[in-house]
Design a protein around this nucleic acid. Structure first.
Length: 403
DNA sequence: TCTGGGGTCCTAGGACCC
DNA sequence: TCTGGGGTCCTAGGACCC
C-alpha cells in the first residue's frame, strides 16, 4: 500500500472510494498465475471492446473502451477473460457494507465506486484519512482487491482526487489547495466534461481548468447555453453543492431498463431483426418482472452500419412488463421506419417511465381471455426460476440461430 | 483504431389544456 | 377573430458516466 499523501485533511469530509481495475481484480483474485500478465476483461466477439484492463495491460497502451482488435494489436500476448457479473455484484455489495459500517452517508455511484460523507465518523476514527485507511485495509483483507480513495471537501474534488490516488493509494486535496489543484487540470479531466464539450472548449481556446475559470461567464453562456455555461464556470471554481445522498432507497425503482445487441455482422434481413427484437423484449420484460416494475414507454434504438443512431418511442395507454406488449410495440416502431433497406449494426429495446408494478392495477381489456399473458408470463418466470434460463425459450428463438 | 452495453439527465419543439 | 402565457406530456436526440 502507498502511504497517504502527507497533507492537511481538516474539513475534507468527503471520500470517493474507487476500486482499482475492479472487473479485472475480481476475476484474477484466484488466478495468481495471471497476476503480472497483461489481462483484459471483455467479450471475445469480433466487435467487442475492453471493459477493464489490468495495469500490466495498460502499460502496453491498452485501455477500457478500446476495441478488442486494437488491444490485441497493441499487446500480442493479451489474455482475454470474460466478466463474471454474479461475482462482481456480490463483491460490490460486500464493499458497500464496509462503507456503511463507517457512515450511513454512502452513495454508490456504480458497481465499483461510492461517495462517503464521513463528517460524523471523525470522533471514532480521528481524521478522514484514517477512515480512508481503515476502509482500504478492510477491503484488501476481506475481498483481496485494492482500492483508491480521494479525500476532499466536495464530491467533485474527491472524485478527481481518487483518480490521482490510483492505484492502491490515498490522495488528499486540502481545502486551501483546492483551487490550485483544480486549475492545474486539463478541462476534460473535470467530471461531467466529456469528449464533445472538451472539443468545444478547446475551440474557445480553453485548455486548462484555469483558462475555463478565467473565461467570462457570458462567453460560456453564449457557447453552451445559460444552464451549462454557468455550471462549467462553477465547476472551474470548485463550487459544488452536491451532498452525499444515501442512495435512492431500494423501494425506488430504476428509471428505465433496456437491452441492446450489436450484430456480429451488419444485418438487412427484417426477419433476423424481428427475431432479435423478440429476444431483447423477452429479456427486458423478464427483468422488469424480476424487479417488480412496469413501464409505459417503449423505446426502439437502431444503429445503422455507418454508426448513425436513431431512437423511436411510443407511450402506451397503460403500464406493462409483458413480453408481447413490449415486443409488439418495438416491432411496430421498427416497421414505422419504413422500408429503409439500410444495413443495421445494432438494435435495442428499452422500457422507461417505470413504477412499482404492484401499484399498477392491471386493466383487463375487453375480449381478453380469462387467463391472459400475465399468467403465461408468470408461469414462464417460475420455470426459469426453478430450472434456469435454458429451460424455456420462445419457439422462434430456438429454431434459428442469431447471426 | 472503426467504435459494447448498461444506464442517467438535459434540451427543444410541438401538442394540448386552461 | 385574434391573442396571451403557463404547465404538462410526448418524442427525438445528444452528452455523459462506468
Amino acid at each position: 500500500m502507498k502511504p497517504p499523501s502527507p497533507t492537511d485533511d481538516r474539513g475534507c469530509t468527503i471520500l470517493h472510494v474507487d476500486m482499482d481495475a475492479f472487473f479485472a481484480s475480481v476475476a484474477l483474485r484466484d488466478r495468481p498465475d495471471l497476476r503480472t500478465a497483461p489481462v483484459v476483461i471483455g467479450g471475445g466477439g469480433g466487435r467487442g471492446v475492453v471493459l477493464c484492463a489490468t495495469y500490466p495491460a495498460r502499460a502496453h497502451g491498452v485501455s477500457s473502451g478500446m476495441s478488442m482488435t486494437r488491444a490485441r494489436r497493441l499487446c500480442p500476448g493479451l489474455v482475454v477473460v470474460s466478466p463474471g457479473f454474479t461475482e462482481l455484484s456480490a463483491v460490490s455489495s460486500a464493499i458497500v457494507d464496509v462503507f456503511r459500517s463507517v457512515t450511513p452517508l454512502v452513495q454508490p455511484a456504480s458497481l465499483d465506486e461510492a461517495f462517503l460523507d464521513v463528517g460524523g465518523s471523525l470522533r471514532a476514527f480521528g481524521s478522514p484519512t484514517a477512515v480512508a485507511e481503515h476502509i482500504r485495509a478492510r477491503v484488501a483483507d476481506e475481498q483481496r482487491i485494492t482500492c483508491s480513495v480521494g479525500v476532499a471537501a466536495t464530491t467533485q474534488l474527491a472524485k478527481l482526487a481518487s483518480r490521482r490516488a490510483k492505484p492502491d493509494g490515498i490522495f488528499v486535496v486540502p481545502r486551501d489547495q483546492a483551487i490550485a489543484f483544480l486549475h492545474a487540470l486539463a478541462v476534460d479531466e473535470l467530471w461531467g466534461v466529456g469528449a464533445a464539450t472538451a472539443v468545444r472548449l478547446r475551440r474557445l481556446g480553453l485548455q486548462t481548468v484555469r483558462d475555463l475559470a478565467n473565461a467570462p461567464v457570458s462567453v460560456l453562456q453564449r457557447a453552451f447555453g445559460s444552464v451549462q455555461g454557468t455550471h462549467l464556470h462553477r465547476l472551474a471554481w470548485g463550487v459544488d453543492h452536491h451532498r452525499v445522498v444515501p442512495r435512492r432507497s431500494y423501494d425506488e425503482p430504476d428509471r428505465s431498463m433496456g437491452a441492446e445487441e450489436t450484430f456480429g455482422h451488419d444485418v438487412a434481413d427484417a426477419e433476423v431483426i424481428a427475431r432479435e427484437l423478440l429476444r431483447l423484449s423477452v429479456k427486458v420484460a423478464f427483468r422488469l418482472r424480476a424487479g417488480n416494475v412496469a413501464g409505459r414507454t417503449v423505446v426502439l434504438k437502431v444503429r445503422f452500419a455507418d454508426f448513425t443512431t436513431i431512437t423511436r418511442s411510443r407511450t402506451l395507454p397503460g403500464f406493462t412488463n409483458l413480453t408481447p406488449e413490449v415486443y409488439a410495440t418495438a416491432v411496430a416502431l421498427f416497421e414505422a421506419l419504413g422500408s429503409r433497406r439500410a444495413r443495421i449494426r445494432l438494435v435495442g429495446v428499452r422500457v422507461q417511465g417505470l413504477v412499482d408494478a404492484s401499484a399498477v392495477p392491471r386493466q383487463p381489456m375487453l375480449g381478453d381471455p380469462e387467463h391472459g399473458w400475465d399468467d403465461a408470463e408468470s408461469a414462464t418466470d417460475r420455470v426459469i426460476d426453478k430450472f434456469g434460463k435454458g429451460a424455456l425459450s420462445r419457439a422462434s428463438l430456438v429454431t434459428t440461430r442469431r447471426p
